[in-house]
Computed example of a mutant assay.
Amino acid sequence: MNIFYFLHYTFYKKMNTTNEILIIDLEATCWENDRIPIGEKVDIIEIGICKLDLKSKAISQKQSIYVIPERSEINDFCTKLTGITPQMIEEKGIYFEEACEKIIHEYHPSTLNWAGFGNFDKEQIFEQCDWLGIDIPFDGEYLNIMEEFRDHFRLHKMIGLKRALDYLKMDFEGNHHSGADDAYNAAKILQKILE
């Protein structure tokens, strides 16, 4: 078995038979130099999500779900990075538990695997669900697209989302650190890996 076939084989083994995968990207409360104030914790403030059809390679159902932070506040640094303001959250935000219910209702994640660019997204979902004592909305296996990208192109180290797109000579579509746009661009990278 040659290495290229082996990589594709192991990749597809991670997928299920539904031929679709959910791609997520989170934005969260953040602080300059990662200095988290005493008494605050990182909170999800946006869940960017889309669906990738593994056969047709079509990307669909792209959206941002804005989330009300319950353990911290959105500061100026966070707004500059993500574009998310406290006013946006006040107008469009829902609580994290409601966001999980929305994902379950609209995407039926119990039948799908899910992916993100790196492990932060998975770990933060797990941490916040654990804190609230609620079930994780995703049942399938998690695929780290950053790792798949490194392995597929036989790179020595993992690289970020924008650098991965540059490597592929692809433009970033939308705004970096917008959850929905980052999820969409991660899905484009996964499309390339699957070619």
Rank of each mutant, 00 (worst) to 15 (best):
E70L: 14
Y5E: 15
I21P: 00
K169Y: 12
I159T: 14
H8C: 11
G39K: 14
I24K: 01
G48T: 05
L112F: 08
Q124Y: 08
E195F: 13
L165G: 02
P109Q: 07
N2P: 07
C30A: 12
K157M: 10
L168K: 04
E147T: 08
P86H: 06
E97S: 13
P109R: 02
K62E: 13
L161A: 04
I65H: 05
Y142M: 01
A58N: 15
T82L: 00
E195L: 12
A115D: 06
G140A: 07
M158H: 06
D139A: 13
D76A: 12
G140E: 03
G116D: 03
R150Q: 13
A28R: 02
D53L: 13
W114M: 04
Q61K: 15
N144R: 06
Y95K: 13
N75F: 01
A28D: 00
H105L: 12
D25H: 02
K192Q: 09
K62H: 09
G179Y: 02
P86W: 01
K92V: 03
N144C: 08
F149A: 06
I134F: 05
A115T: 06
Y12K: 15
R71H: 10
K102R: 14
R71G: 03
I103K: 01
F149N: 05
G118P: 07
D25G: 00
H152I: 07
F6K: 13
Y107V: 06
M170I: 14
E127V: 13
H156G: 11
K62P: 03
H152E: 09
E141P: 00
L81E: 04
A186L: 05
Q128M: 12
I44P: 00
K157Y: 11
N144H: 06
M158K: 14
M158N: 11
G116Y: 06
G118A: 15
W114T: 01
D25Y: 01
F117K: 02
K162G: 02
V67L: 01
S64Y: 13
E46G: 04
M15R: 08
Q61S: 15
E91R: 14
Q128D: 11
N175G: 09
P37K: 09
C30P: 01
C50M: 11
I104R: 14
A99V: 03
E97Y: 13
G140F: 03
I45F: 08
C30N: 06
L26K: 00
F117Y: 15
Q128G: 05
K62R: 15
I49N: 04
V42A: 07
L112K: 15
I65M: 06
A99H: 04
L81Y: 03
K169E: 14
F6Y: 11
A115C: 12
A186N: 04
K80C: 09
I103R: 01
Y9I: 08
S60C: 14
M88H: 07
H152S: 12
